[in-house]
């Protein structure tokens, strides 16, 4: 038996998770609209995380994925099931087999699956004869091939996959409000991968980024990747808020602030130059870049204040009720 979802096309433009989810949900008619809308509604656009040494893994180290992705998809009104863990744990072979079955079921229903390659990609086909999955990574035209037996094995120590189900409609205003609340939470939570404190999130991520650039011996590829992702996300936020004009005055003001921020992006981009076919931060313009980022942080901080004012007007049961799930240190 084999299944191949033809209409599913993933392109790397945003965070890899966003790109994956967008490809899957649009192909399955579970989402309509531009990618920045998905990025905004899920709160993914607002996630910003930086390792002290500006390592490339920063971009996807925005927290424990289960805790970050579930609320993101919840806000779209879509049921989602995911599983993840560490490959070295003794129960992995069992969960791997379960995952293979769940992925095939999802594909049989015509819905692609998010998979940590790494980065996040989309499983869009399987073949029982060859016992393989076909995975798009959004960068190459050809699909990657992964044996059922190798599902979840990669050079990081963890595995992850996520499937999607039915949908309920949620009022647009409620979704936007929830996305603002996710943004506030991300801005205000400095560490989302405790007990590790070498990765900062939200407001503190700006500090790590500037300090990392300043001290000089940062990871060159990582720095560019972080900056590119940051600039893309800020543009997404601006476009997302642009479409949400007219609901709350404060949101219109926040849109203006992100507009100013987005206007600085070309100058930030100028601080990255091509060197022997690779893009690198121009070390002679680091101070300028830090200055731009510092201004951006101030603008964003003001925008988040506006979000807070909006949020305060409505009851927030989700965040005023202590849950029975969520943040925990990896065990």
């Amino acid at each position: 038996m084999s299944v191949f979802l033809q209409d599913l096309v993933m392109k790397r433009e945003s965070k890899s998770y966003t790109d994956s989810v967008y490809a899957i949900l649009t192909a399955a008619n579970l989402f309509q609209g531009p990618k920045y809308l998905l990025s905004g509604l899920t709160g993914m656009a607002f996630k910003f995380s930086v390792h002290q040494q500006l390592l490339p893994m920063s971009v996807s180290a925005y927290g424990q994925w289960g805790n970050e992705h579930k609320p993101a998809i919840d806000n779209l009104g879509i049921l989602t099931i995911f599983d993840a863990g560490r490959v070295r744990h003794h129960t992995f072979p069992y969960y791997q087999q379960e995952a293979v079955n769940a992925v095939k079921s999802s594909l049989d229903c015509g819905i692609g699956v998010v998979y940590w390659i790494p980065e996040f990609g989309v499983i869009h086909g399987y073949d029982d004869g060859d016992r393989v999955f076909y995975i798009q990574d959004g960068c190459s035209e050809e699909s990657q091939i992964v044996l059922y037996d190798n599902f979840g094995l990669n050079f990081t120590t963890f595995w992850y996959y996520q499937v999607f189900g039915d949908k309920v409609d949620i009022a647009r205003q409620d979704m936007i409000l929830e996305s603002l609340r996710l943004a506030i939470l991300d801005w205000e939570t400095p560490f989302r991968t405790l007990p590790n404190t070498d990765i900062a999130s939200g407001k503190l991520a700006y500090v790590y980024l500037c300090q990392g650039l300043k001290q000089g011996s940062f990871n060159t590829h990582g720095a560019v990747y972080i900056l590119d992702s940051y600039m893309t996300a800020r543009t997404e936020i601006r476009d997302y808020l642009g479409d949400a004009q007219g609901i709350w005055t404060e949101l219109d003001e926040a849109y203006q602030l992100y507009g100013l921020l987005a206007a600085m992006i070309p100058r930030m981009n100028d601080c990255i130059r091509a060197h022997r076919g690779e893009r690198q931060v121009d070390l002679s313009r680091v101070d300028e870049l830090i200055e731009l980022l510092t201004q951006a942080e101030l603008l964003e901080d003001q925008a988040i204040s506006h979000f807070r004012h909006i949020s305060a007007r409505y009851p927030d049961l989700k965040r005023t009720t202590i849950p029975r799930w969520g943040s925990h240190t990896p065990r």
């Binding site: 070295r88 003794h90 992995f92 072979p93 094995l153």
Partner: peptide, 11 residues
């Protein structure tokens, strides 16, 4: 007993 180290299988 536990956690046989999962090694990548070849194609």
């Amino acid at each position: 007993w536990n956690g046989q180290v999962m090694t990548r299988k070849p194609f």
